[in-house]
Design a protein around this nucleic acid. Structure first.
Length: 403
RNA sequence: GUGGGAUUAGCUCAGUUGGUUAGAGCACUGGUUUGUGGUGCCGGGGGUCGCGGGUUCGAAUCCCGUAUCUCACCCCA
């Protein structure tokens, strides 16, 4: 038997229904914020992700589904969504057009990782990207949208925020940190020594207790923000307070993707195991430029749909639609015709097999139909159909042509 | 990529120190004497015990390998 690849899941109802419900809910809310639907290819040139996500990241370093296609192009399945949107944004010359552009998208992403709960090799994200607004007010709007989405789905969460600084203060801070690490090179763990070379900020995130003791003395990013970043972060907090959105400042919140600057945020759930980040995002004002576009401020986020699925509280399923059956072979053409008419407006399930009255009612109940309609010998002779409302428990026999 | 646990019917799981034709509940399906369901009663189908080797007179049970899931690390959505 051929089975699906490791870390790649099929999705049937009811999971697929929750998925669908999530997309509907998120789409509705994104549109309320003025975002429009965007669709990008799953396959892109590998260079796109090397330049945007960054070669130092794990994603690009070891997790991409990368191969040479028949035209000898170095390509890969997208490991995340932002790079593709930015590429398209520039390709369409929207950077030159100027103004504000807001997009939402959703679809599969691919990362070759060791699977576990909440971490798949093919997973789905719902993402938002906003171009052209430099102010943190837009960051707040995105967080508000995320709050709206999670609230609408009945999902509990914790919001963590941080500022990563910008091109004025981040490089300076990075230098300070690296020289601090150089002084303690013999005491930090092997992982941190590697991080020092690739992405030094990440050491702050190290789970090793000994490292953390050392880093207690390390220079703090918060205290090294430039004036602009500092006041933006203050405004961000004020606006969140004003909107009564609870948050926690987590100075260790370091995004794994190189392109983030200034605002970084993450929504975390404590109900889904160790892969607890259900949504994450932040500002990436330099990325459009990095990808050869005209400098354009931007901010975005992505939601991990699979991680949300089991947390979604769906509305109670209600009885709906029709179940139509016949009690003898001769009635089959009649119920097929009745179903055809009724399907113009309602869901209809036809039972092809002739059954007795009781079994039809059982069948109607099993498919959770609102109405059970039956044509027996009597109805067939009279040109009528018997219909029962299974919820209100009323029944009537009506002419077939007015059904 | 590192370390631990798991894998028996469609699902959730029993399976006694290795010993006859491997069980239960739910689900599915048929009937319940011939027109009133979701909640009665009776019956039925369905398992190469993840896969491949090995030990043994005999393996679901012991050993080795492998695949997948899962937990922690790592990483991130």
């Amino acid at each position: 038997m051929i089975q699906s690849l490791r870390g790649m899941n099929d999705m049937f109802a009811p999971d697929a229904e929750r998925f669908e419900y999530f997309i509907e809910t998120a789409t509705t809310i994104a549109k309320r914020y003025g975002f429009t639907y965007f669709e990008a290819p799953l396959l892109e040139e590998t260079a796109l992700f090397k330049r945007s996500v960054g070669e130092s990241s794990d994603i690009v370093g070891k997790e991409m589904y990368q191969f040479i296609d028949k035209g000898e192009n170095d390509v890969c399945l997208r490991p995340e969504g932002t790079a593709g949107v930015v590429r398209a944004f520039i390709q369409k010359k929207l950077d030159k057009q100027g103004g504000i552009h807001r997009f939402f998208y959703h679809g599969p992403m691919f990362r070759y990782e060791r699977p576990q709960k909440g971490r798949l090799r093919e997973f789905h994200q719902f993402g938002i990207e906003s171009f052209g607004v430099a102010s943190v007010v837009e960051d707040v709007s995105l967080i508000m949208m995320l709050v709206d989405i999670l609230d609408a789905l009945g999902i509990g969460y914790k919001l963590e925020i941080n500022s990563l600084g910008d091109q004025n203060c981040m490089p300076e801070y990075r230098t300070k940190l690296v020289s601090f690490l150089d002084c303690h090179d013999d005491k930090i763990c092997a992982d941190c020594q590697r991080r020092k070379a690739t992405n030094p900020i990440r050491v702050l995130d190290c789970k090793n207790g000994d490292c953390q003791l050392i880093y207690a003395e390390a220079p703090k990013l918060m205290q090294n923000l430039c004036e602009g970043c500092e006041s933006d972060f203050t405004l961000l907090k004020e606006l969140l307070d004003e909107s009564q959105i609870a948050y926690e400042v987590n100075t260790h919140l370091v995004r794994g993707l190189d392109y983030y600057s200034k605002t970084a945020f993450e929504f975390v759930s404590d109900e889904i195991g160790s892969q607890s980040a259900i949504a994450g995002g932040g500002r990436y004002d330099r990325l459009v430029e990095f990808l050869d576009g005209k400098e354009t401020p931007a901010v975005g986020f992505a939601i991990g749909i699979e991680r949300l699925l089991e947390l979604i509280k769906m509305p109670e399923p209600k009885r709906n639609g029709y179940y139509i059956g016949t009690m003898d072979e001769e009635g089959l053409p009649l119920i097929m015709k009745a179903a055809q008419a009724k399907r113009k407006s309602d869901k209809v399930i036809v039972e092809y097999k002739s059954k007795n009255f009781k079994n039809h009612l059982k069948g109607a109940d099993k498919v959770n139909a609102r109405y059970c309609a039956i044509i027996g010998e009597n109805e067939r002779n009279d040109g009528t159909i018997w219909v029962k409302d299974l919820e209100v428990k009323t029944e009537e026999t009506i002419p077939l042509n007015s059904f």
